[in-house]
Design a binder for these strands. Structure first.
Length: 283
DNA sequence: CCTAACCCCTGCTTGC
DNA sequence: TGCAAGCAGGGGTTAG
């Protein structure tokens, strides 16, 4: 579900909630979430947060980083990944937990933050920042909204990749936070076919692509993310960026860029995931 | 290091 | 109405 703009929206919404009271209790489901050495396993993962105060919320790629302070103890970081169907929901203590809730933090002020994830592709882990750096966070590529990411860096990263450019953009080591919707939209705006070999892009195309990716992500953040189906911010609100999509999910419709030319948007499955493009204006 | 294939899950939509 | 198949915005692992 959530790509960078949705995760950013979640972080901003959570920051605005101004959770400051210490964690009174931690509840954890009996399910494994994302499988892997790094991630919290069934029945574990949040207990260390009890008694600690929530501090700063930030984001790296599609990961949410939430720091918690304790009395004269080193800061702990709760790292969350929402996977495909994960969401954070802010409730009152005592509210019934939604189905598929996996972690619930009850704060001393009577509020409760739930991590809900039906498909369980998401995950979380509590640890020091040094521990997290050894996990997937340490392997992420540049932040697309930072100065580390530009046409030169992108061109270099793509230079030896034979995979389709759409798949390269989904690789979090090449650029962190871009998912299928925004990768497909950026390629459409740059008139680059999603199946083009990544290494075949010219420097000029990489320059344009890096700019478009950043612009598309920024716009989506301003609109509160893209809600195609499930995505909701912690207060339950929907995103509005779905209205801006040019090709994603629009198979068979006319391409806005070729109005009157009768070009229809097509869908192709790459690596098991749909890519959408206009066969007339993308090459 | 790179790539493709396959895996992990539930729930909604589509087609018969 | 029922049922099965297909599909979904994520990434991890593994074999080659």
């Amino acid at each position: 579900m959530p790509e960078l703009p949705e995760v950013e929206t979640v972080c901003r919404s959570l920051s605005q909630a101004k959770l400051r009271a210490p964690v009174q209790s931690v509840w954890r489901s009996a399910y494994n979430l994302r499988i892997g050495e790094y991630w919290a396993k069934r029945n574990e993962g949040g207990a260390k947060l009890k008694g600690r105060r929530p501090l700063k919320i930030s984001r790296r790629g599609k990961y949410i980083l939430w720091s918690f302070g304790g009395e004269s103890q080193a800061e702990l970081l709760l790292v969350l990944h929402l996977g495909m169907s994960g969401a954070l929901e802010l409730h009152r203590k005592g509210d019934k937990k939604a189905n598929h809730t996996h972690l619930a933090l009850t704060f001393a002020d009577g509020r409760r933050l739930d991590f809900v994830d039906p498909r369980r592709f998401g995950g979380f882990r509590v640890g020091s920042s040094a521990e997290h750096a050894l996990g997937p966070l340490g392997k992420l590529g540049p932040e697309p909204l930072s100065s580390d990411f530009d046409g030169e860096a992108l061109h270099r990263a793509l230079s030896k990749r034979k995979v389709a450019i759409r798949d390269a953009l989904l690789n979090q080591k090449i650029v962190a936070g871009v998912g299928n919707i925004y990768a497909v939209e950026a390629l459409y705006q740059c008139k680059i076919h999603p199946q083009r070999a990544a290494s075949s892009l010219t420097r000029a195309q990489c320059d344009a692509l890096a700019v478009r990716i950043a612009e598309i992500l920024k716009q989506a953040i301003e609109l509160g993310g893209t809600t195609l189906r499930d995505y909701r911010a912690p207060d339950g609100s929907r995103g509005r960026n779905q209205l801006q999509l040019g090709v994603y999910g629009r198979e068979g419709e006319c391409c806005g860029g070729c109005a009157g030319q009768d070009a229809k948007i097509e869908r192709v499955v790459l690596g098991g995931r749909s890519a959408f493009f206009c066969p007339r204006c993308q090459s």
